[in-house]
């Protein structure tokens, strides 16, 4: 790992200030993507600005259907949050399968979505839940937040503070893990927001990163059943292809996982 300077931010504006002052800074919370990358000498930030100690940053609040999850909330705290479990169990379920128990104790939702790894789970949930990403500068709709593999619309000194969303009527996430890394090779989050508003977020499979399967959403709005998406094409041309699976395999997995999620969301 290259040398770096670590500081803890007092609040979001302090974090932004520190970032502006840094030559090539990075925010860090759990660090479970950033530190492995730094260890491989693939990243060399001059400064690490730790936002996990900012007051309230790890809080989760649930008020009726309105959910707010602080950016520094760990996967474990999302997975085990009893109020969240009542209104949106599918997100708890998703969080409970990110990485392994030790990873879930450190990795955070903010880190996951800011990094936008094409195989990360949270992005699928964010677009399916119609979440809003709250930063120190603005509120960004999830659909506009994720702009491509490892790309988001975040500005350099922009810190994610929280994500908010309204819990759907029902939802479910089905993931097919990469046999080696256990990241998603295809993960599909289906959320039924009522009034024919169905959203399907797909992660892991596409070369463009997370996307909404609009054709499935349409079909499900008419008939919310696994069979309803039989006719929906998953374009192989958009899919990733690597040693773990061809594009055709991933396209198949998207369909199979979508069906499983639909069945589970019931």
């Amino acid at each position: 790992m290259y040398d770096t300077t670590y500081t803890r931010a007092k609040d979001a504006s302090d974090a932004a200030k520190k970032m502006r002052a840094a030559e090539d800074g990075q925010f860090i919370a759990g660090g479970h993507t950033l530190l492995p990358t730094m260890k491989q000498r693939l990243a060399a930030p001059s400064d690490l600005i730790d936002i996990s100690h900012i007051k309230g940053m790890a809080d989760i609040s649930v008020s009726r259907k309105d959910v707010t999850i602080g950016a520094a909330a760990t996967h474990a705290s999302v997975a085990n949050h009893s109020k969240l479990m009542k209104v949106c169990p599918s997100l708890c379920e998703l969080a409970s399968h990110i990485g392994d128990p030790a990873v879930r104790n450190r990795g955070t939702i903010g880190g996951s979505i800011a990094n936008n790894d094409p195989a990360a789970d949270y992005p699928a949930a964010m677009v399916a839940l119609g979440a809003t990403i709250v930063t120190n500068k603005r509120k960004i709709r999830a659909d506009r937040f994720f702009t491509g593999m490892f790309e988001t619309s975040l500005k350099e000194d922009e810190v994610i503070k929280a994500v908010t969303f309204k819990a759907p009527k029902s939802g479910a996430y089905a993931k097919f893990p990469n046999p080696a890394s256990r990241y998603a090779m295809a993960g599909v989050y289906v959320a039924d927001h009522g009034k024919k508003d169905i959203r399907v977020g797909v992660t892991g499979a596409s070369s463009g990163g997370v996307y909404r399967a609009k054709n499935m959403e349409k079909a499900l709005a008419k008939d919310f059943s696994a069979d309803a998406i039989d006719g929906c094409k998953v374009d192989e041309g958009d899919m990733l292809s690597d040693i773990h699976g061809s594009a055709a395999y991933r396209a198949n997995l998207v369909k199979v996982m979508a069906k499983r999620a639909i069945a589970a969301a019931g």
Binding site: P179, A180, S181, Y183, D242, I243, H244
Partner: peptide, 10 residues
């Protein structure tokens, strides 16, 4: 290509 536990399935 399978040069870490991210790609070599243990």
């Amino acid at each position: 290509i399978s040069a870490s536990y991210m790609d070599y399935t243990m």
